[in-house]
Design a protein around this nucleic acid. Structure first.
Lengths: 198, 198, 198, 198
DNA sequence: GATGAATGAGTGTTCATTCAT
DNA sequence: CATGAATGAACACTCATTCAT
């Protein structure tokens, strides 16, 4: 634990990714420039390219991190010993937390598993993201002891939850006006309605 | 009274909008340049600015068109004399058709009831889009004879449908692999599951 | 004097030039577009090109008009029966009036006589402007009964007057602050000082 | 302490400014494009933006340099131990040299004491230019031991000199034709006539 | 290993001018 | 004769990426 003279590449990647994440959350991935990230992370623009192939790889890297967090949250908030409803609401809670931390990657989660890697260029992290998505799917299937209908049910649940969370985020002011409820309280009602789906 | 040789501005606007729509569908609104649109529509870049104030106005124009189509489709596929389930599936059908034609504006539909026009600059078409969104909301409320619970129910339904349709679009290949069904057939199953929500 | 069915070209030129002049005075010749002029004059952009070869010719046309006005003003405010000082101040008055009406052409007046027409393209009006400039020079020479020293004296006077008028225009606020006098009153003092030159 | 291989930013700024200055002198600041400057300076367009915030900053930078040169020249050519006439002619000489090097900024000098910096955006260099202008004014006042009449006298002198120099520049060919003198010799006569003003 | 410096390839937008009708 | 329509040529400015040191 002595003084670290040389930092591992992973440390630099983390530092860069953290800076990028904060900027992406506030301004979106398109608006943020490589220069912005470099400045915020305390590196020169050129150094970023030592640790990441290009801007896209930073995005992919964060997408993977975000999926891992999502998986962790889902596992933390669910348990086979709980009732199905408790577990469903646990998944909702996990997704919501995820959205708050990585709003810019929610569309990624809405995609869950990034499709076809055969033709397009992709980064290893994209593949990893895909795998984490698969793991989440498998976990949910096991959690609810789903059989043949697993895929369609998981699909319906996942799509619905992502849809309502995103809609709620875009309509926060409108929700307040119409229901006098906070976004969170309102979404709680919505989740209860959606529970019937499972 | 003779056949008009000169084309009305609206014809040009349509031609430009159609070209833009096709490009947007494939590459997204950001990546497509004004030059791309002009070339595809068969005009010079400068001519585009005769018919549209700027690129944003083209985007707004298409957004409005897309919302109008959505409304038309929903009305066409529903009827107060039908059962709730028939109507629900009618709405699903309308949304699906909408997605096929204007995938790049689906996020717009996912917003449905649009934001706050008090402070930001916006084009008339943006306001019109907002109004069409409101009309769709009102129509659905009346169609299902919803009372106090109208807002939360409509919200849950709309968010869910948008969510699953988008998810299905992104996972078409994956769905095929897992279920051997076409996206449409698969979504039909999903819609039936979701019907319980209403 | 009956109803005019067809207007002479000169009428159109005047109408266009008047519109242009007002716009030029306010925004300068560069900022004003051909479209602006056409709209203000009540013509289509293309029609302008029926009456003027191009934007430059409109500028030249106005420059000539402005020089003619300058000549008229000088003649009106001077007289061989007056004292030299009265005539000098009359010229000052004429130049000042000119500046107020055509501030954007004052540099033109500062040039007085437009130099060399051998190599550059120029419009007939430019040549006319040159001739009017010459006429003014000749008039002044005769007015003050100048001999061999005519050229250098006229030159010094003309350059000085143009210089102080323009400087005063740019420093109006500053003059007020330093002297509590209006630009006009201050310039009157300046003109009296400059009279010694002649 | 060794010889520096890397060039300081100021070197690049100078190189760019020099190129810009030459182009501005010939074609004016408006006609010259950023690309033109870049090409002439041997940089790419993008590189210019590494050393200057934008085109305006290049203009401002040169304006300041020009005013500094003007001040230096005036000081160099004048001295309290000299006669008023000698000093007057020294100022003339300074202004003339300035005009030769920075004709495009002569209007700037014709403004000398610059405007109001309270509302508009401006660059530091613009403010510096203003200050140098003030310094020149103060120097002249002291040089000629001017009292209450300082402002109006300085004003008349400055305006006149600028006026005749500019007029002479525009009429060089004409002067030659009329007087068979060089512009410089002719201006020398004019300056002698104008000396009476002070 | 780190980076200062450089840049190619865009971007949306403007405008004077032309020409077929 | 008048003009709606069309456009080539610019133009200031940006940014992800490369590379010599």
């Amino acid at each position: 634990m002595g003084r670290r003279i040389k930092e591992e590449p992973i440390v630099h990647r983390e530092r860069i990714a953290t800076a990028a994440s904060e900027l992406f959350k506030e301004h979106g991935t398109t608006k943020v420039t490589v220069n912005d990230i470099a400045k915020k992370a305390g590196y020169s623009k050129a150094t970023l390219y030592t640790y990441f192939e290009n801007k896209d790889e930073i995005v992919s890297y964060l997408a993977l991190k975000s999926m891992s967090l999502l998986k962790d949250e889902i596992i933390k908030n669910t348990d086979e010993s709980k009732t199905d409803k408790e577990n469903f609401l646990g998944i909702c809670k996990g997704l919501l937390k995820y959205y708050k931390k990585y709003p810019m990657y929610f569309d990624f989660a809405q995609d869950t598993i990034n499709v076809d890697f055969s033709e397009n260029k992709f980064y290893n992290t994209d593949l990893d993201t895909y795998i984490v998505g698969q793991e989440i799917s498998a976990y949910i299937k096991k959690l609810f002891k789903l059989g043949d209908e697993a895929f369609v049910t998981t699909f319906a649940m996942w799509g619905s939850l992502c849809g309502v969370i995103k809609l709620a985020a875009n309509k926060e002011a409108f929700i307040k006006k119409e229901t006098s409820k906070s976004k969170e309280a309102f979404l709680s009602d919505v989740f209860n309605i959606l529970y019937k789906v499972v």
